[in-house]
Amino acid sequence: MYELLLLFLALTCIFLIGITLYLLVVVRRIRNSLGGHSVYELEMLNNSLETLVQRADDSSLTLTEEIKREEFILKELLNLIDKRKRELEDLIANYDQHKQTGSKEQEKDIRSDVLFYLEKGFTSKEIAEKLGKPVSEISLLCKILSQNKITV
C-alpha cells in the first residue's frame, strides 16, 4: 500500500509539473503576443499614458480658456477701433463743414494780419513766416493790399 501511495504521489507530481510547464508555455505565448512585455510593464505604460492624456486634457482646457480671453480682448479692441473710426469720421465731416463756412472769415483774418504787419514794416517773407503761410501767397496778398489800400 505504501508503494501505491508513493506511485500516486509520483504521478501527481509529474502531472503538476506538466501543468506548470503548460502554464509557463501559455504565459510565454501571451507575453510574446503582448510584445514581450510583462503585465507590470504594460500597467506602468498604461498609467503613463493615462497621466499624459490627463495633462493633455488640462492643457487643452487651459488653451481654450486663454483663447476665449484673447477673443474677448480682440472684440473689445474692434469695438474701440469702430468707435474711434466714427469719431474721426465725425471730425472730418465737421472740419469739411467748418472749412466751407469759415474760409471767408479766415481770408479776412489773414488780410487783416498781413495789413497789420505791413503797417509795422515787415517784409513779405517775415509775414509769411509769422503766419505760417507760403511766401508767394503772402507776397501776392501784400501787392493786392498795397495797390487797393484795403482796410479791414
Rank of each mutant, 00 (worst) to 15 (best):
T20H: 09
L21W: 04
L21S: 04
Y22G: 02
Y22W: 05
Y22I: 03
Y22S: 05
L23H: 00
L23S: 01
L24D: 03
L24C: 02
L24N: 09
L24P: 01
V25C: 02
V25G: 02
V25K: 09
V25D: 02
V26T: 06
V26P: 01
V26I: 14
V26C: 04
V26R: 13
V27M: 11
V27P: 02
V27E: 09
R28L: 00
R28W: 00
R29V: 09
R29D: 12
R29L: 09
R29S: 11
I30A: 11
I30H: 05
I30L: 13
I30T: 06
R31Q: 15
R31H: 05
R31F: 02
R31A: 03
N32P: 00
N32V: 12
N32A: 11
N32G: 03
N32K: 15
S33Q: 04
S33L: 02
S33I: 00
L34D: 04
L34Y: 04
L34K: 07
G35A: 08
G35D: 04
G35W: 05
G35S: 07
G35N: 08
G35Y: 07
G36K: 08
G36I: 06
G36R: 10
H37C: 09
H37Q: 11
H37E: 10
S38C: 02
S38W: 05
S38Q: 07
S38I: 01
S38H: 05
S38L: 05
V39Y: 06
E41S: 13
L42W: 02
L42G: 02
L42T: 01
L42Q: 08
L42Y: 01
L42A: 03
L42N: 08
E43M: 15
M44R: 11
M44V: 12
L45W: 08
N46H: 11
N46D: 07
N46I: 11
N46Q: 10
N46F: 10
N47K: 15
N47Q: 14
N47H: 10
N47I: 14
N47F: 08
N47L: 12
S48R: 13
S48C: 03
L49D: 08
L49K: 11
L49W: 07
E50S: 14
E50H: 10
E50Y: 06
E50A: 14
T51E: 08
T51G: 09
T51K: 12
T51Q: 08
L52V: 09
V53S: 04
V53F: 03
V53N: 12
V53P: 00
V53H: 04
Q54E: 03
Q54L: 01
Q54Y: 01
Q54A: 04
R55T: 07
R55M: 11
A56G: 03
A56E: 06
A56R: 13
A56C: 07
D57K: 14
D57E: 12
D58Q: 07
D58Y: 00
D58W: 01
S59W: 07
S59H: 09
S60L: 14
S60D: 10
S60C: 12
S60G: 15
S60F: 12
S60R: 13
L61E: 13
